[in-house]
């Protein structure tokens, strides 16, 4: 059974790895529709963009060898984290594997950290400004990501065995934390401040071109999808525990992950860009408020 799960996880990971650029293509079309534009000619446009970057010559930016290496490492770790989240999704119904869940969170955090380190290693002072903005935001947001994902999955399972209004409320709150945390981590508006003003301050993208840029973008899209799948898993946890996991619930989770991905894209279309001070302050206040309520609920005893 264990071997079968691993094999299935590997199979789905291999398939899902192709999905993020496609979802991005759909998101671009949806965004264009909202903005009264035609948008890219096909849903596959992001794939075409990546392939074109892939055939361009390899250019390593000045003092950027370590940054390029870290981008590749980040991509590998993101792929492993995709495997981990697929594995969690497949095994949730029977029992929760805390080790895999912990490993998943470590991998996601590692992927983010590597991205940040890659940003910080650049010698471009303009890119550094964006990188430090990103570091500030990520440090704050990782807290929400860890708390939100662990609590929402745990409480989702608990809902099945020990349903109460308080448990449901706590579950929804933790889900809200997870949704916000994954949204911020996805680097969409209004939290794309690391790449905000390319003429004044930018992030790592300004340093990369060709193949490295292609891998960076792919890794970024993959991270977005892993986060969307994590939210989808957290949402479907109560249902996964009640109903048979395969073949019905797992595909539903995958479908939900695509919906989450696109919903995030739609939300981003409706917002402007925040400023680093406003963004950090807003996020801090949000987490402080929700986590305080969560602690109170836990203390009351759910």
């Amino acid at each position: 059974m264990e071997a079968l799960t691993i094999l299935l996880s590997l199979l789905f990971t291999s398939i899902l790895a192709f999905l993020p650029p496609l979802l991005d293509g759909i998101e671009r079309k949806v965004r264009a529709k909202i903005q009264s534009r035609f948008g890219p000619p096909t849903f596959l446009q992001t794939w075409y963009d990546l392939l074109k970057l892939g055939v361009k010559e390899l250019k390593i930016p000045l003092s950027g060898e370590s940054a390029a290496f870290l981008v590749m490492l980040s991509l590998i770790i993101t792929l492993i984290s995709l495997y981990a989240v697929v594995y969690v999704a497949l095994t949730l119904s029977t029992s929760i594997d805390f080790i895999v869940l912990a490993m998943l969170l470590v991998l996601v955090a590692a992927s983010h950290s590597l991205g940040l380190v890659a940003s910080a290693t650049t010698s471009n002072p303009f890119a550094l400004i964006g990188s430090y903005r990103s570091i500030l935001l990520t440090i704050l947001n990782e807290l929400g990501l860890v708390v939100g994902s662990v609590l929402s999955i745990l409480l989702g399972l608990r809902l099945v065995t020990n349903y109460s209004i308080l448990t449901l409320a706590t579950y929804l709150l933790s889900l809200a934390v997870l949704v916000v945390a994954t949204y911020v981590s996805s680097g969409r508006l209004p939290f794309d401040i690391h790449e905000a003003e390319p003429e004044l301050a930018s992030g790592t993208i300004i340093e990369f071109s060709g193949k490295i840029l292609g891998f960076y973008i792919y890794s970024h899209l993959l991270t977005r999808y892993v986060l969307s799948l994590l939210v989808a898993v957290a949402i479907s946890t109560p249902f996964t525990a009640v109903f048979s996991p395969l073949p019905a619930v797992f595909p539903a989770t995958l479908l939900l992950s695509a919906c989450v991905y696109l919903a995030y894209g739609v939300v981003a279309t409706l917002l402007g860009r925040t400023r680093v001070d406003i963004g950090v302050r807003t996020l801090f206040m949000y987490y402080l408020l929700v986590l305080t309520v969560l602690v109170i609920f836990t203390w009351i005893g759910i």
Binding site: L189, L271, G272, R273
Partner: peptide, 16 residues
Amino acid sequence: ALHLLGYDTGFMHAWR
């Protein structure tokens, strides 16, 4: 101005 504020949807509609 809306584009500079990151609100590209507003930018697109203003120009439309």
